[in-house]
Structure formats: structure tokens, C-alpha cells
């Protein structure tokens, strides 16, 4: 891990994590970011009050499908008055600059963030990334050693939460998905008995 910013791995709860979720118009390279939700975990506590949520005014409004918009609980009208992508990326950057980034399925959201940071001429801040799907897999492997016939944990956010007894939430909404990821992280961290940040990446 060459990006490691700490000389010695800090205790897991000394680090601030920003759970982040993007809603996008699709999964292709030319798809756009429609909304961002971010929720911080400080000292092991989710500070919901410090959350960040914003819609993003699309560069090409015509490229949005009606179904996609409906699935994300976003109306085209709302997007018109939303801040532009550059402004929102700046908000993201100031938050995750020194902290860990917490994602569920990090590859998708990361590639979007990196691509759009590059596109707007901003250097990517390269935060430490914690991925709840990775943690789920790790926990699954550990369980498999004890119970050879155990099924792997589901990787979908809602299904994984349900597997650990967490309540249902409004899916495909950037803020509530980010919060859902943060809550799932607290449970997984405890299940893994991870004490340091290194044990979580």
C-alpha cells in the first residue's frame, strides 16, 4: 500500500471516514453524476448532522433517461437549479482531503470520481479507501473457515444490511445510501474486531 499516509496504522476510531454514495445516470464512461451524499464517521460515531448532500446539474440534460431519474428520486426540474459538477467536486474534495473514503463497491464510484476530477482539471486527492464489500468478503471467508458450508454474505447494500439485522432504508438515494453504508461499516468493523485502520483496508 504505497499510498499509506500514516507511518503507524492509527486506531480505527481515530480516523474520520466519509461514507459517500453517487447516483449516476448509468454505468458507462459517458454517464453523468446526478447526486452525491456524504456522511462522516468521527470517533466511531456517525455524525449525521454534518452530512453533505447535493444534486449535480448535468452537463447534457438530454442524455438523462426518465427511468433513471425516477429510480434516483430526482426530478429533472430539481437538477436545473442544482450546483454544477465542478462546485460539487470541490465540496467532496474539501471533505475527503485528509480523511478516509468509505464506499460500498468502491470501483464504480471511484472510477467516476477519478474521471471527473481529471476532466475538471483537479488533482485526485487519493484518500485511503475502505470498501464495505471488501469487508463483507473478508468476514465471509472467516466464517467459511468455521462453517465450511456457509453461504457468502450478500453484497447488495440492502441485502447485506438485512443480513446483519440493520433496518431497511430508501435505496438509490445518495444520502440514504451513504448513511446505510456508514451504518453497515460500524457493524462490519465490530464483527471483524478490527482495531486499526490497516485492518480495514
Amino acid at each position: 500500500m504505497n499510498l499509506w499516509p500514516f507511518s503507524k496504522s492509527p486506531a480505527w476510531n481515530e480516523v474520520t471516514y466519509w461514507a459517500l454514495d453517487l447516483e449516476t445516470s448509468g454505468l458507462n464512461n459517458d454517464d453523468q453524476i446526478l447526486s452525491v451524499g456524504m456522511v462522516p464517521i468521527r470517533h466511531g460515531i456517525i455524525e449525521f448532522g454534518a452530512h453533505f448532500y447535493s444534486l449535480v446539474r448535468p452537463v447534457r440534460p438530454d442524455a438523462l433517461s426518465a427511468e433513471g431519474v425516477k429510480a434516483h428520486h430526482i426530478l429533472p426540474r430539481e437538477l436545473d437549479s442544482a450546483p454544477g459538477l465542478e462546485e460539487v467536486l470541490e465540496e467532496i474534495k474539501t471533505r475527503i482531503g485528509h480523511d478516509a473514503l468509505l464506499l460500498h463497491y468502491s470501483s464504480v464510484d471511484l472510477s467516476f470520481l477519478q474521471r471527473y476530477f481529471r476532466a475538471t482539471g483537479k488533482p485526485w486527492v487519493k484518500p485511503v479507501v475502505v470498501d464495505t464489500v471488501v469487508l463483507l468478503a473478508r468476514l465471509g471467508e472467516r466464517r467459511l473457515r468455521l462453517e465450511p458450508h456457509a453461504k457468502p454474505f450478500p453484497t447488495g447494500l440492502a441485502a447485506a444490511r438485512a443480513a446483519f439485522g440493520l433496518p431497511g432504508h430508501l435505496e438509490h438515494h445518495a444520502l440514504w445510501d451513504a448513511l446505510a453504508t456508514a451504518e453497515l461499516f460500524l457493524v462490519l468493523r465490530q464483527q471483524l474486531q478490527a482495531q486499526t485502520l490497516r485492518q480495514l483496508v
Binding site: I45, I46, F48, G49, Q190
Partner: peptide
């Protein structure tokens, strides 16, 4: 209340 809300998990 929403602005001051904190969420925590206790095993």
C-alpha cells in the same frame, strides 16, 4: 434534531 443527530452501533 436532524442537524444534531448522531448514530452509533452497540453490539
Amino acid at each position: 434534531l436532524a442537524r444534531a443527530l448522531e448514530i452509533t452501533f452497540y453490539p
